[in-house]
């Protein structure tokens, strides 16, 4: 929660501009006026991290949403109907898994333009087969449960059974995957930044901050340490959130 708050309130929390350059303040170590120091163009690192929080968290959410939007219906249909639909969809999933994610990312970015959103689209698509598989497994397990049989006996339509009786079963595994996915997306954005395909500079996305700072490791440790800590904190809290949710939703682990 605190994370989201700081992300939203970033402009109120800092006296500095995230993009304005200031040659006189180049590579200043952390001090009272610049809590996390400054970067090579004299920009305040703390300010950039605060502004970056919004971008980074948002991109994480976007990519997970995309993965869920593609993966869940896929798994649901494949698991529920079985037969030819299942076989075809699972072949598709196999194909997507076989296809190198990095190629997909490069191609999407090359076609749609260099933008963090497009990068996240690629990350989301690459992740979707995993969701599809997990959902399918859950659906297969749920399908044979007595309450589903009961629903069918009372004349419920397929669509209704799928949405009302089976979909809720998939929520727990999706939450676990999703919280991990947000973290994964932030790291994937960093990797794409490293390859020069991430956030449009000079956006202070966290991964881009790390990638920018990597050439200054020996002279300005603060340029990478603080964004690194920010990512770690975010990943940690998101995962704890996910663990909490899973434990709460899984009766086996409750006692």
């Amino acid at each position: 929660m605190a994370l989201i708050l700081t992300a939203v309130a970033a402009p109120l929390l800092t006296p500095y501009e995230p993009l304005a350059v200031n040659p006189a303040d180049r590579l200043l170590p952390p001090s009272l006026s610049h809590l996390f120091g400054t970067d090579v163009l004299g920009r305040d690192v703390a300010t950039r991290i605060l502004f970056g929080a919004r971008i980074s968290l948002l991109t994480g959410l976007i990519s997970v949403t995309i993965a869920i939007l593609i993966g869940v219906p896929l798994g649901l249909v494949s698991g529920f109907y079985g037969g030819l639909a299942d076989r075809l969809l699972m072949r598709l999933v196999d194909l997507m898994l076989t296809f190198p994610g990095i190629l997909l990312a490069l191609v999407i970015i090359a076609i749609l333009g260099p933008d963090l959103f497009n990068a996240m689209l690629a990350v989301g698509i690459s992740a979707s087969p995993t969701y599809g598989r997990v959902v399918r497994a859950t659906v297969l397990a749920a399908k044979s449960q007595t309450y589903v049989e009961a629903a069918r006996a009372t004349g419920c339509t397929n669509a209704r059974i799928m949405l009302r009786h089976i979909l809720p079963n998939t929520v727990a595994p999706i939450i676990v995957l999703g919280t991990l996915g947000v973290a994964g997306a932030i790291i994937a954005a960093a990797a794409l930044s490293y390859l020069g395909l991430g956030a449009r500079p000079p956006e202070p996305e966290w991964g881009a901050l790390l990638s920018e700072g990597r050439n200054y490791l020996r002279v300005a440790w603060w340029m990478t340490t603080f964004p690194g800590l920010a990512i770690m904190t975010a990943v940690l809290s998101i995962n704890l959130l996910g663990d909490g949710l899973r434990d709460a939703l899984d009766p086996w682990l409750r006692n």
């Binding site: 991990l180 973290a183 994964g184 960093a190 490293y194 991964g207 020996r218 990478t224 770690m232 940690l236």
Partner: peptide, 21 residues
């Protein structure tokens, strides 16, 4: 689990640079 999470939240290029250093 903290060590494991540290792993997920570290970009490879950063970890690699630290290892080299």
């Amino acid at each position: 689990m903290l060590v494991a999470l540290g792993g997920v939240s570290m970009p490879i290029f950063w970890l690699a640079a630290m290892l080299i250093f």
